[in-house]
Amino acid sequence: MDFNALTAAIAPLNLRSCLISRQGELQYEHYREARIPEEVAKVNSVTKSVLSALFCIALDQGLLPEPETPASVFFPRLAADRDARKGDITLAHLLTMSAGFDWTEFGGQNSFPRMTRAPHWIDFVLEQPLAHAPGTRMEYNSGASQMLSAVLAQAAGMPVARFADLHLFGPLGIERYEWEQDPQGVHTGGFGLRLLPGDMLKFGLLYQQQGKWENARLLSRDLLARSVKPAIAAKAPNRGRYAWHWWTDSFAESADGPNPPAPDYYYARGFGGQYIYIVPVQDTVVVLTADKWRTDKPPTDVFRRHIAPLLAGMR
């Protein structure tokens, strides 16, 4: 396979890294600088998809109740709130960003920055009013992710990073990483991980291989499939649908409307150009990382603009 055209296309974008694996083999590897493969870097909201994997592992182990369980089981103040709808929020609503909180991640209310400046992040999230009935609309919300991280730590009886070491990172051979914590010591559920590009690829390969790694099953096939199944329409200007802290989309021009096309791929996405794409039908995993968004922001969809056409030619 000739990747010369891709190299020429991404050269002006100043990407930090681009890795493409097909049928379990690394077929393309680009780094802006020789040191990058050995440097952990922020993956931002890709952290959410890692949290989703850990949540599935905990469900597999029976540490967590069914996703339809009310979140008030872990946060009793939701059931006691003056707005009775808060008692209807479930773990599944948190996973699909559809809890209904009046939340603007950036801009407007600047909910996310305000949370990170609060002395107690979980309390900040729980105090936010509802703008919609739970389950009716997606509103991107890293506070929901922080709630899920707190739930996982409580259910597992250990810090989230320790649970990851034992059941995800350790088996995948991910040894060099960093993970931020909130003021109460809860690992950040919506951001805060720093990973190597090669370790991001390992995580994507785990999903491409249906939860198996070196003949060991880390995630059950059924829960993995459930976690990446489109659950709710993504809020504009985003395309496609949202699953359990994963995005899903189609190669079709429009993924919107009441009858969207079946998703061709799903992906983890982090601010500033951090992506892990899984394309099951083509047995392909793509990792993209960037760090120049403040000065020369690359196109928002390098995958669809430059990589998807190559994949289409491989069919």
Rank of each mutant, 00 (worst) to 15 (best):
Asn4Gln: 11
Ile10Pro: 14
Ala11Gln: 09
Leu13Tyr: 03
Cys18Met: 12
Ser21Glu: 05
Tyr28Ala: 08
Tyr28Ser: 11
Glu29Ile: 13
Ala34Cys: 11
Ala34Val: 12
Arg35Phe: 12
Glu39Pro: 05
Val40Pro: 04
Val43Ser: 04
Ala53Ser: 13
Ala53Val: 11
Leu54Phe: 07
Leu54Ser: 14
Ile57Ser: 11
Gly62Trp: 04
Pro65Ala: 12
Pro65Trp: 01
Glu68Thr: 07
Glu68Ala: 09
Pro70Gly: 08
Leu78Thr: 01
Asp88Trp: 00
Ile89Asn: 02
Thr90Lys: 02
Leu94Arg: 05
Phe101Ala: 00
Phe101Lys: 03
Trp103Thr: 00
Trp103Ala: 01
Gly108Thr: 04
Ser111His: 09
Arg114Glu: 06
Arg117His: 12
His120Met: 03
Ile122Gly: 10
Phe124Trp: 01
Val125Leu: 06
Gln128Cys: 13
Pro129His: 10
Leu130Gly: 08
Pro134Leu: 02
Gly135Arg: 11
Thr136Asn: 11
Met138Ile: 01
Glu139Pro: 06
Glu139Ser: 09
Ser142Gln: 09
Ser145Trp: 15
Gln146Thr: 10
Gln146Phe: 02
Met147Trp: 06
Gln154Leu: 11
Gln154Met: 14
Gly157Glu: 07
Met158His: 03
Pro159Glu: 13
Pro159Gln: 12
Val160Ala: 07
Asp165Ser: 07
Asp165Met: 07
Leu166Ala: 10
Ile174Ser: 05
Glu180Arg: 13
Asp182Glu: 08
Thr188Gly: 13
Gly189Ser: 10
Gly190Asp: 07
Gly198Asn: 12
Asp199Lys: 04
Lys202Asp: 02
Asn215Met: 14
Asn215Leu: 14
Leu223Val: 10
Leu223Pro: 09
Leu224Trp: 03
Val228Glu: 11
Val228Asn: 12
Ala234Val: 05
Lys235Ile: 06
Pro237Val: 02
His245Val: 12
Thr248Ser: 02
Asp249Lys: 05
Ser250Arg: 01
Ser250Met: 02
Ala252Trp: 09
Ala252Lys: 01
Glu253Leu: 15
Pro260Glu: 05
Pro260Trp: 15
Tyr265Pro: 04
Tyr266Asn: 03
Ala268Trp: 08
Arg269His: 03
Phe271His: 03
Gln274Ala: 14
Ile276Glu: 10
Val279His: 00
Val279Pro: 02
Val281Ile: 05
Gln282Pro: 13
Val286Ile: 03
Leu288Ala: 13
Thr289Leu: 05
Asp291Ala: 12
Asp291Tyr: 08
Arg294Lys: 14
Lys297Ile: 09
Pro298Met: 07
Thr300Lys: 06
Val302Pro: 10
